[in-house]
Design a protein around this nucleic acid. Structure first.
Lengths: 202, 202
DNA sequence: TAATAATTAGTACATTTGTTCTAAATACAG
DNA sequence: CTGTATTTAGAACAAATGTACTAATTATTA
């Protein structure tokens, strides 16, 4: 395998399992059996590794979102499917979410990028809400401010369910994803019309 | 002022403003104008400073909870008041929430303590939910699993609203608290009975 | 094949960090 | 006032870290 790709793969493994602050470029090189010099030939600065991994995550997530947007009409099932895929992706790059503030301090470019991203996503969520209301899945009797609060909730839950898992359950892999996708389902439930709630209970 | 207390005060300031990983015991000593030797006379290990600050937070929060539990019957206003006080307290010790996973890795005792705490809190929340249902404030037509999901939501939101603020809005002090207490209100809204919703809209 | 470019190993260096140690200064008790 | 305990400063050390540098090896290209 390409050394550069291998560095990214090994770094992801180590960051995920031991945290972004305990793992240094030397650890990554040692685990791969290459010299520190070699590693720094491919990534002059260690932070570039983190930045690259973040970019991979962002790119993968963009694919998920554009897939979602291509489906019309949006059903509750497509939404649930999207949620599960998002959780899986987040789990793959979990060190980013587990150390999000740390990383955004260390690599300011990530912070800027993330900020721009949330601005875009916010609009996309509102568009999806609008569709789901039209289709009789989401309630239409809630004040607008409630939907705004929901978007922030989605962001916080989406970014930090992994941290919650780390601090409490420590569920691994598919167990974690299963548990938290149920939390996400539950989170939307009170926003559904009675008809949609009934369909969900089946 | 007591040197020990002063160390804690200065450490809190620096951790809050610059993060727990960038600030070292030397930074704290320098800011206070004392020697590193002196600082380590009072706290043999730097982590003890973090642990002590966490204990202060936990103790302060315990006071809030026991105050809440002493009030009968629980109204929507007491709940909102409790939420605002909680947010204020979290803001005071914000570095802990901004670096929760980091810290729990660095100081395993904190992790254990937090885990035990959430177990307790979970029960307390269910008890409060039961009361609020009895009083006609919370809906009684939602399945039990939805309330379980809500508790996890409350934990995640409560622990990570500060991280969300750090990554996006960067609101300061009372502005942050105001904004996120509205998010919290919005979060509970769909769980309220129509009567309670109407009263809230006033 | 010869020359050039890319990759790699290994070493080296300045900085930082947590912590310890010693001695001085200060506070306090009898 | 004298002796003891507490507090403080400052130096010292070992370990770790990011990164740069040099020389060797390997791959590529003409």
């Amino acid at each position: 395998m390409d050394t550069r790709t291998n560095i990214l793969k090994t770094a992801l493994e180590l960051y995920n399992s031991q945290g972004v602050n305990t793992i240094t470029s030397r650890h990554i090189a040692a685990k791969m059996g290459i010299s520190p010099g070699n590693l720094h030939y491919h990534f002059r600065q260690t932070d570039e590794i983190i930045k690259t991994l973040y970019e991979h995550l962002a790119a993968d997530f963009d694919v998920l979102v554009s897939e979602l947007e291509s489906i019309h009409p949006v059903s509750l099932d497509t939404l649930r499917d999207f949620a599960v895929r998002s959780l899986e992706l987040a789990y793959k790059y979990r060190f980013i979410f587990l150390h999000f503030v740390e990383i955004s301090l260390r690599v300011p470019a990530i912070r800027k990028d993330y900020y721009a991203l949330t601005q875009r996503r916010e609009k996309e969520f509102f568009a999806i809400f609008r569709q789901l209301k039209k289709e009789g899945i989401f309630r239409t009797d809630l004040p607008e401010s409630i939907w705004e609060a929901l978007v922030t909730q989605i962001f916080i839950m989406g970014d930090f369910w992994l941290s919650n898992n780390e601090l409490t359950g420590r569920l691994k892999g598919s167990n974690a994803i299963k548990h938290y996708s149920e939390i996400f389902s539950g989170m939307f439930y009170p926003y559904l019309t009675p008809a949609a709630q009934a369909r969900m209970a089946e």
